[in-house]
Structures are given as C-alpha cells and as structure tokens.
C-alpha cells in the first residue's frame, strides 16, 4: 500500500510568466530600492497596460509596493519588492527545486 507523494504547491501569484519576471527584476535591486514604472517596463519588456495589471495582482498579494510621488509637477510611479515579496520569491524558488529534486526513498510513498 503506497500513499501518493505529496507535492508542494506553487504560489499561484508568482507562478505566471509575466509576474515571475517582474518579481525577479525587482529582486535584483537592493532592499528598499525603488524603480520607476517606466524603467521597470523597459526591464521586463511589457506594455504599460499589461504591467499595470500584473502589478495590481502582486500589490494585492502584498508582494510589491507601488508608490505614487511627484517630481516637480510630474507624477512618478515607483515600484519596489516588499519584505513579504522577497520571501515569497525565495520560497517559490525553493519549492521549484524541491519539485525537481529526484524523489528521496523515504518521500517515495513508503512512509505512512
């Protein structure tokens, strides 16, 4: 009698190509650094509409912080990775590695 191997589940917020790319690009910046919306758009190569949609989802999950400020009279939107976001990306990467690691004998369903 074998129990099925329990596979760890992936964070659905990050596990989408576009959002993963945004998270990785932001994670390269040191903690506390912000990047303007337009520079981020350039870094990930997305349209403004597309990037906004994905940023909203990441913001709802608490993974990114979107701040609107003014430089003179021009509004500037800045984006940064939150502490939770950084941890979520680390966990997500660890889960991917776990999924790809060859199943260890004791994790192969021989334990109850």
């Amino acid at each position: 009698m074998t129990a099925p191997r329990v596979l760890p589940s992936l964070d659905a917020v990050i596990h989408a190509q576009a959002r993963l790319r945004v998270m990785v690009a932001l994670s390269v910046l040191p903690f506390g650094e912000q990047v303007t919306f337009s520079r981020l758009q350039e870094l990930v190569g997305m349209t403004a509409g597309n990037l906004s949609t994905h940023l909203r989802k990441l913001e709802e999950a608490g993974y990114v912080v979107v701040a609107k400020t003014f430089r003179g009279r021009t509004p500037v939107t800045s984006v940064s990775l939150s502490r939770d976001g950084r941890r979520a990306l680390e966990d997500y990467t660890a889960t991917l590695r776990e999924l790809l690691a060859p199943a260890a004998p004791e994790a192969d369903g021989t334990l109850p």
């Binding site: 040191p30 650094e33 303007t36 981020l40």
Partner: peptide, 9 residues
C-alpha cells in the same frame, strides 16, 4: 542607475 531610487543612490 536610471529610474532607480533609494538609500543606496
């Protein structure tokens, strides 16, 4: 460093 702001700047 274009478009990047924060303590390290």
């Amino acid at each position: 460093g274009r478009g990047v702001h924060g303590p390290s700047r």
